[in-house]
Design a protein around this nucleic acid. Structure first.
Lengths: 344, 344
DNA sequence: TATCAATATGGTAGCGCTAACATTTAGCGA
DNA sequence: TCGCTAAATGTTAGCGCTACCATATTGATA
């Protein structure tokens, strides 16, 4: 409603929002002082700061994050790349990340690869284009192009879910060991014909890592380690089908080690309907420790993975790095816990 | 590796990535032409475009989205504000949004209010600061400050989940009608003492809307409509507790209308353990149509809400608007479907 | 009062890109 | 060939903010 007789040669749209300059004029300070009130309040005298804050309210200033990020080459964006949003495991990891990053004023950029490494690479590129401050990515396996980008990128990177040789920070659990742990438990219960059942292992290669641990133990005990892979998604329905399949093609099986709780839960509920007794006729074990597994009868023997912790720990490690804290361990084993239920 | 004898008076860090100018030099065109190759390839002659694309590859250019967004005052960010990430319903809505927006090159900014309207308002502010292209927000109830911001904001806004008086686009379902629908069904089955059980209705006010529809029908039939509110989260455990509570304080109840499937499933599984027959001793109904409800015995009578559709439709409406398509209806009733299972 | 360091504030240029306008080139009929 | 229009490309000046350096102010000390 003012400043008119100027002759702006090349007028542009802009966002039509009040800017830092409007605030500065109102508070009778310079723009940079306003900027400092926003970014480093301690460096401005209390009286000045109060004046600026009043001006901010008065003009209804909304900070333009894009401009700030561009100028400082730092966006406070955290790129998060997961393979699926359909899997509760990743959702819980995201929740953990979210709750930590949010406290520190970082904004998550969420990307979903649908288990496609090409898409993963492309997402990483895009996120670098947003000048992300850090990257959280699922797994240690990426395609070459992606691996190269990761290695050259200077900011913190957390590769999560599994342990191994990471580019930078690594937070996860030891999947082969989890597989071994459950296999040992099943053996200790006296089961001799244990089948491992997974769904779409090409995608969920961590399920394969667990299988490998499982097989190791069985073979050490002189047993076979049959594997059945379902090609549907790892859901209740698939678990039910898998139970039927095991009964049909491996009738001597006395235990099923499922790659996850969804499958295992589906199998137990299906067993109920079909009148198959668990664990008397067949024992069932899962992986993840989802709540539902503890509400069915018999309740599920499973391994609890600390999913939210993975998110939280990754976030903390990244934040520490971004704030220049002394570099702590870059590898975090979040562990897991065997939960012995009634089903095995 | 060139341009040195210039005297850059005020050198800055920058991102040290190749810029559009580097590409332009390599391709022997001007910067704006490179920009056009990126944003409107059709407006550049094929031969020139090829040269530019080769140059992009050669110098390893990564587009700086921040700079572009700032200059064009348009970020291709879609702000998405939900009250919780712990509720699968919102996750599925997000999936729907994601899958549509991604196709069109929009990036979602996810915000989680934890059912706090102050936080909601603050998130909306922050997201405006990112020059978001559009906003998707759960529910129609916001605090005054937020409401004001929404009304004044020029870009598309979708208020989702429920139907009613929205600022702009509205996609959702008629919760009171869903409540009525289930109440009618329960009456038609001959139940006479129907309790409605919800968890934390202060947060989940859509559960209250359904209750109101439910009560309307019962009262029209000359029946009471008792309400039990649990103060824990709406999960399996709470459903189990609720069943006990109903048995204790309303022993004459012959049916429970739960506010969601999690509660209802918890109750059915608990009934199994306690030897309470469903629906003979007590009928149970839920809301949402989650998969788990169809895998338990008896399977759950519920109302299926098209959650991913809400996301998809909202996204499509917003995209249409952003691309300047002729304005279609701004209110979309996604409907719902009564699923009659064995439990009621 | 002069001296110096520490603290607080300001001026200016530039982050990397694109809107707006200007100019050149190509295309085509008379 | 000359126009003329449409298509392709270029020039310039910001978008709104912060890094960098410079200057002013303060306060403690000699």
């Amino acid at each position: 409603m003012s400043s008119s007789t100027q002759k702006p040669k090349r007028p542009r749209k802009g966002s039509m929002q009040p800017t830092i300059a409007d605030v500065a004029r109102e508070a009778e300070v310079s723009a940079i002082t306003v900027s400092r009130v926003l970014n480093a309040p301690a460096s401005v005298r209390a009286k000045t700061r109060a004046r600026v804050e009043a001006a901010i309210d008065k003009v209804g200033y909304v900070r333009n994050m894009l401009a700030g990020s561009l100028a400082s080459a730092n966006s406070r964006f955290i790129a998060v790349v997961v393979p699926s949003l359909s899997n509760i495991v990743f959702i819980e990891v995201i929740k953990g990340l979210q709750s930590e990053f949010e406290k520190h004023g970082y904004q998550i950029l969420l990307g979903n690869t649908d288990y496609d490494l090409e898409r993963e690479c492309q997402l990483v590129r895009t996120f670098l284009g947003w000048s992300s401050s850090a990257l959280v990515i699922s797994g240690l396996r990426h395609n070459d192009a992606c691996q190269r980008i990761l290695r050259e990128w200077p900011n913190p990177i957390a590769e999560i879910m599994e342990l191994g040789e990471a580019v930078d920070i690594n937070v996860g659990l030891d999947h082969p060991e989890a597989g071994r742990c459950m296999a040992r438990h099943l053996l200790s219960c006296g089961y001799q014909n244990i089948v491992y059942v997974a769904a779409q292992m090409a995608n969920d290669y961590r399920a394969r890592l667990r299988y490998e641990g499982h097989r190791e133990i069985l073979e050490a005990a002189g047993l076979e380690a049959p594997l059945i892979e379902m090609d549907q998604l790892g859901q209740f329905e698939t678990g039910a089908k898998a139970l039927d399949k095991v009964k049909a093609i491996l009738p001597e099986a006395d235990a099923i080690h499922f790659a996850n709780d969804d499958l295992a839960t589906g199998a137990i509920l299906h067993a109920q309907r079909r009148g198959i007794r668990v664990p008397e006729d067949i024992a069932i074990a899962g992986f993840n420790g989802l709540p539902i597994g503890q509400h069915i009868s018999p309740n599920l023997t499973t391994i609890c993975s600390p999913r939210e912790s993975i998110g939280r720990l990754s976030a903390r490690a990244i934040i520490a790095r971004l704030e220049g804290k002394p570099l702590t361990a870059s590898s975090h084993d979040v562990g897991f816990e065997l939960h012995v239920g009634e089903s095995a």
